[in-house]
Computed example of a mutant assay.
Amino acid sequence: MSQAKSFATRIGSLIQHQEHRGLLGQLACTALAHRASCVGALSATCRSYGSSAGGEDARRQLLRKHLLVDTMELESDFEDAGMQRADASRLARKITELIIENKLKMEEAFVKQATLEKVILEQTAKIQGFKTELQKAQDMHHAAMDKDLEQQQSYLDKMKAEVRHEIDKLTASQRLDMNLEKGRMRDELMVIRDKTTDLQIKVDREINELKSSVEKAKNDTIKSVITILGTFSAIAFTISRFIQMSGGG
C-alpha cells in the first residue's frame, strides 16, 4: 500500500505539469482510438453489474479478469495521496485504458490456452493420421516388395531350371559327340592296325622270300665254286698226269 501511495504521489506531481498532461492525453486518445469498443463494452458491463444487487462483486471479478489491478482502489489511493478527485479519476481511467490496451495486445501476440490445446489436439490427430497413413503406406510397400521378391524368386528358380536343363542337354550332347568320336577313332585305329598288320605280314613274307633267295643264291654260288674248283682240280690233275707221263716216256 505504501508503494502504491508513493507511486500515486509521483504520478500526481507529474500530472501537475502541463507537458505530462498533454502526453497522457495523447496516450489516452490513442488507446481510445484503438480499443474504444472494448473499453465501452467493459464500461457497459461494469454499469450493468453495478445496478444489480451483487454488482460490486461482479465488477471486481470482471476487473480481475481483464485487469491486473483494481482501478477503484487505485483511484482511492490517488485521492489519499493528495490528488484531486477529477485528476485521480482521469488518471485511473487512463491507466485502465493502457492496461486494457496492453492486455489486448498481449492476447493478440499470444494464443489462448484453449486454442493452444485445440491446436495441439488437431496436430496430434493429424500426426496420428499421418502415422496411420505412413504405416499403411509402409505395409503396402512391404507387401508390394514381398510380392516382387516372390516373383523375382520364382523367375530365378525358373531360370535356374532352364539353365540346368540346357546344361544337362549340352552335357548329354557333348557326351554323345565324344562317344561317337571315340567310336570313330576306335574304328580308324582298328583300320590302321589291320593295315599295319597286313603290311607287317607282307614285309615278313618279302623278307622271308628275300632270305630264301639269298640262301639259294649262296648255295648256288657255293655249288658253282665247288664245281669250278673240282674242274680246276681235275684239269690240274690231268695236266700233272700228262706231265708225268711225258717225263717217264
Results as ranks from 00 to 15, higher is better:
residue 15 I to P: 03
residue 18 Q to S: 04
residue 145 M to T: 14
residue 75 E to P: 02
residue 120 I to R: 13
residue 219 N to G: 14
residue 23 L to W: 09
residue 112 K to S: 10
residue 74 L to F: 08
residue 35 R to W: 15
residue 16 Q to F: 03
residue 137 A to H: 10
residue 224 S to N: 11
residue 151 Q to F: 11
residue 18 Q to P: 00
residue 246 S to I: 02
residue 31 A to V: 05
residue 115 T to H: 07
residue 219 N to Y: 08
residue 63 L to D: 09
residue 125 A to T: 10
residue 193 R to V: 01
residue 107 E to W: 14
residue 200 Q to R: 05
residue 238 T to D: 02
residue 194 D to Y: 11
residue 157 D to N: 13
residue 160 K to V: 12
residue 108 E to W: 09
residue 29 C to H: 11
residue 186 R to I: 01
residue 134 L to V: 09
residue 92 A to W: 03
residue 41 A to E: 08
residue 70 D to V: 01
residue 143 A to Q: 14
residue 191 V to C: 02
residue 223 K to Q: 05
residue 119 V to N: 13
residue 151 Q to M: 11
residue 98 L to T: 06
residue 41 A to W: 06
residue 233 S to Y: 15
residue 55 G to M: 01
residue 188 E to Q: 11
residue 64 R to L: 02
residue 213 S to L: 03
residue 183 G to R: 11
residue 226 I to G: 00
residue 1 M to T: 02
residue 182 K to N: 09
residue 208 N to K: 01
residue 28 A to T: 00
residue 83 M to D: 08
residue 204 D to S: 01
residue 137 A to P: 08
residue 231 T to Y: 05
residue 146 D to H: 06
residue 227 T to A: 12
residue 77 D to E: 04
residue 46 C to P: 00
residue 156 L to N: 03
residue 107 E to Y: 15
residue 193 R to D: 12
residue 149 L to H: 12
residue 90 R to I: 00
residue 58 A to S: 14
residue 187 D to N: 07
residue 190 M to R: 05
residue 87 D to V: 10
residue 53 A to P: 01
residue 72 M to P: 01
residue 144 A to I: 04
residue 10 R to A: 15
residue 245 M to V: 05
residue 145 M to D: 10
residue 137 A to I: 15
residue 223 K to F: 02
residue 173 S to L: 05
residue 84 Q to A: 15
residue 179 N to Y: 14
residue 221 T to K: 08
residue 61 Q to N: 13
residue 106 M to K: 13
residue 79 E to N: 01
residue 145 M to R: 10
residue 242 F to V: 06
residue 167 I to L: 11
residue 146 D to C: 06
residue 236 A to R: 07
residue 42 L to R: 00
residue 136 K to R: 07
residue 116 L to H: 03
residue 73 E to R: 14
residue 132 T to R: 09
residue 87 D to H: 11
residue 172 A to M: 06
residue 183 G to E: 14
residue 133 E to I: 00
residue 151 Q to E: 13
residue 88 A to P: 00
residue 226 I to K: 14
residue 151 Q to I: 14
residue 83 M to S: 08
residue 239 I to P: 01
residue 219 N to H: 07
residue 202 K to Y: 01
residue 116 L to G: 00
residue 79 E to T: 07
residue 216 K to M: 04
residue 169 K to M: 08
residue 220 D to M: 11
residue 84 Q to F: 08
residue 248 G to P: 13
residue 209 E to W: 02
residue 130 F to M: 15
residue 53 A to Y: 04
residue 74 L to P: 00
residue 216 K to L: 07
residue 167 I to H: 09
residue 246 S to H: 05
residue 175 R to A: 15
residue 117 E to F: 08
residue 68 L to Q: 07
residue 94 K to N: 15
residue 222 I to V: 04
residue 106 M to C: 08
residue 243 I to L: 04
residue 168 D to S: 11
residue 150 E to T: 10
residue 11 I to D: 13
residue 243 I to P: 00
residue 44 A to C: 09
residue 151 Q to T: 09
residue 208 N to F: 03
residue 146 D to M: 09
residue 155 Y to W: 06
residue 94 K to V: 15
residue 166 E to G: 02
residue 156 L to D: 02
residue 176 L to S: 10
residue 136 K to C: 05
residue 217 A to Y: 06
residue 147 K to D: 11
residue 90 R to N: 13
residue 150 E to Y: 05
residue 244 Q to V: 05
